[in-house]
Design a protein around this nucleic acid. Sequence first.
DNA 1: CGAAATCTTGATTGAATTCAATCTAAGTGG
DNA 2: CCACTTAGATTGAATTCAATCAAGATTTCG
Lengths: 230, 230
Amino acid sequence: MFVRIPTDRRPQPNTLDEFGLTSAFNRIIGLGEFTYRKGTEIFGEKEPAVYVYQVKHGAVRSYKLLSDGRRQIGAFHLVGDIFGLENGDEHRFTAEAVVETVVRLIKRESLQLVAAKDAVVSHNLLSMITRNLEHAENHMLLLGRKTAVERVAAFLLEMDFRTGADKMSLPMNRLDIADYLGLTLETVSRALSSLRKAGVLTFLDHDQREIMLNDRRRLADFDPQGPAQP
Amino acid sequence: MFVRIPTDRRPQPNTLDEFGLTSAFNRIIGLGEFTYRKGTEIFGEKEPAVYVYQVKHGAVRSYKLLSDGRRQIGAFHLVGDIFGLENGDEHRFTAEAVVETVVRLIKRESLQLVAAKDAVVSHNLLSMITRNLEHAENHMLLLGRKTAVERVAAFLLEMDFRTGADKMSLPMNRLDIADYLGLTLETVSRALSSLRKAGVLTFLDHDQREIMLNDRRRLADFDPQGPAQP
DNA sequence: CGAAATCTTGATTGAATTCAATCTAAGTGG
DNA sequence: CCACTTAGATTGAATTCAATCAAGATTTCG
């Protein structure tokens, strides 16, 4: 199964399986699976967009670079997520495997062919792009107006939401998180430490990628846009 | 005429007329025009999206707020731009008139009806959403990774590009610009002053909203993502 | 094992914010 | 018409939050 949406949670930016694109993936004679080693580029910015990808295992980062190397990660793609879908002919981001990652891929062409005939699929494509847009809109607010701790809190809530477990195993390192949040890795580390000291989370097992959220509610208090609490 | 695209420039995020949505606007018996006074709200975030709007005259800002009032403007909509188009049922931004603004509006319903029957219109809707997405993606890079002067330079280039004249009359004030660029109004003012001192621009007429770009090329050097120079 | 990678923490610096003062232009109303 | 207010912009000084520089700890891996 590709679908891994926690039953008690609404769909999230970048996760999109229940929207039925997976069915399109399944229907098309795809090129099967491909494995990328940690740190490998899957496609580059400005390259022609030939394939559309779905994460089967692992995680992917999509980013843009400035001429001097400053990097902004626009999104992380987790298991089940589809990425690399472009309306135009070229990719607008570079995509890299964060860890060893298995993706399924199909030709963009084939997907468009199916979409042209199947209103459901074409509707799902639109929904997916809209979801990406919503995510980007929220991320603009984060990048433009939130403090360091607020950004990190929002990030943890997003990951928690998307992985659907209190105990999270973050595939990306501090630098990736920093480049996603518009911070430095040191600032991310300090923010995580202060959240740990505040008791809202615990690092598990000396492995700092495993994070246990002790109090999702109190964590949400650190994010001024955090989801309303029931 | 609504279309006002300089012939030597490619389409830009948020300007979208040559994509034919205007024809859809024209075909539908719209609710005609409506005028909003400076500072007036056109629609609010989370409100049901009943209408889609096109700027006939003036300018509009779309923004999100944090609980304590921090504001992030996601986009400015200039003459010809369509805004308030949602795939879902509610608006994701608040929209306000920056200056006295005339908009044309049609029911979202009617547009969707036309789109369902006319593949060209529906394709144009997709193009428009994609354009908004591209703009948001680029803006994430700006907000996450560019310095104050770089942001202001990028802003001027964007406005120049969209208005298509070296001599620009900016409808928005310094605070609007600041909230668009994730800065304070003082920082925007300082950046503009330093660009003026560097000679790339001139304020005209003691009215600091009228800006003359003396050297677009040199201005682009201030933006590390600026358009490639021919 | 030794080297490289990753993370944390401390000290310092610095870019942007905040606080504050001034200036100009544009109303507004007596 | 002019005093007075208000809105917007600029500039200076002080502050602050995050970046940078630096060191050390721990893990991972060839």
